[in-house]
């Protein structure tokens, strides 16, 4: 026998053809798309499962974003409502406004006349006809005073005390309880979103992993032959990674469609609800970044599921 060579391979490796890697990816991507299209019913089922799994946490994220926006931009700042005695003189009202505006912690002061208050009440209470029966406007003049974001509870109490001591003022209400509730709700939705997001993301990964695993089982003969003729693990894994990616992206698309449908369905009641708080419906966060992010998230989760399934199964595929 000839003297053993130092080489670690019986033959020198021929160079890979130029762009072979890109060519193979293009081919595999196209074949994977064809494979999923040919099994459209199964693929739709997987896309729906992933889509639903993504839509719920994504919906909660949207809800949380909008609640934050609601509490942050509009009502998030602490404030007080000042109610005047009925029939209070305008000079007293102006004096209280001036006093309020003079406070360092006060950011803005709105004057709500009895007529404005009645009009708003009629609009949102549904008691318009009943109110028409009243001989006189029973609502008092009031001020809505908001404090700067930097103001604390002590500032709030100081402002309430100072304004409460002014002539013509009947009552001062510190508006924080429901804001605290709204903030607490926002926090709850946030945490719920994180927990559900993690659970449903895991669900999406498992759905993809199972689907990819089934695809591997269905192509086991082909994989064995490919391994026999010298396919590397990366080559064997590639189509399944594309399956996962396409399942994930499709799931993301379905999630977007579901969320759009839900938003359409909720648009009217939400507008009514927000209108009752004197605001207009302006959904925050459902923008291109969100759409792209959701698709990307779907793709990443799908890819992750595919990596899990292919690592676990392809490692044990025996050659013929």
């Amino acid at each position: 026998m000839a003297k053993e060579k130092v080489s670690t391979h019986p033959w020198p490796s021929p160079p890979r053809a130029r762009f072979a890697w890109f060519r193979d990816h293009a081919r595999v991507a196209s074949e994977s798309f064809g494979y999923l299209s040919a099994r459209l019913a199964t693929s739709l089922l997987v896309w729906l499962l992933i889509g639903i799994a993504l839509a719920l946490p994504a919906g909660l994220f949207l809800l949380q974003t909008n609640l934050s926006s609601l509490t942050g931009d509009w009502q998030g700042r602490p404030g007080v409502s000042v109610y005047f005695e009925r029939g209070v003189a305008k000079t007293h009202v102006d004096a209280v406004i001036a006093k309020a505006e003079a406070q360092a912690s006060v950011q803005q002061v709105w004057h709500i006349t009895p007529e404005d208050a009645l009009e708003e009440f009629q609009e949102f209470s549904g008691l318009a006809e009943s109110l028409d029966l009243l001989a006189a406007n029973p609502l008092p003049s009031s001020l809505k005073v908001t404090l700067a974001n930097s103001a604390d509870v002590v500032d709030l109490q100081d402002v309430a005390r100072i304004l409460g001591a002014q002539k013509g003022v009947d009552e001062v209400v510190i508006e924080k309880t429901w804001l605290e509730r709204l903030a607490a709700l926002s926090s709850l939705v946030n945490r719920l979103g994180v927990v559900l997001g993690a659970m449903f993301a895991l669900g999406a990964v498992l759905v993809t992993a199972t689907s990819v695993r089934l695809a591997i089982e269905a192509r086991l003969d082909e994989l064995r032959v490919q391994k026999l003729v010298g396919a590397s693990n990366a080559f064997l894994r590639r189509p399944f990674l594309y399956f996962g990616l396409l399942y994930g992206l499709g799931g993301g698309l379905i999630a977007l469609m579901l969320l759009s449908a839900v938003l359409l369905l909720l648009e009217k009641p939400l507008a009514t609800l927000l209108g009752s708080y004197g605001s207009t419906l302006n959904v925050v966060g459902f923008d291109f970044t969100f759409l792209a992010g959701l698709m990307l998230l779907g793709g990443v989760l799908g890819l992750f599921g595919a990596v899990l399934a292919s690592q676990q199964r392809l490692g044990t595929v025996e050659v013929v």
Binding site: T8, H9, P10, W11, S13, K227, L228, V229, G230, A231, S232, N233, F235
Partner: peptide, 12 residues
């Protein structure tokens, strides 16, 4: 031969 060298070996 290490596992990673097998595909290239089998291609021959």
């Amino acid at each position: 031969l290490p596992e990673r060298a097998l595909p290239a070996y089998r291609r021959n």
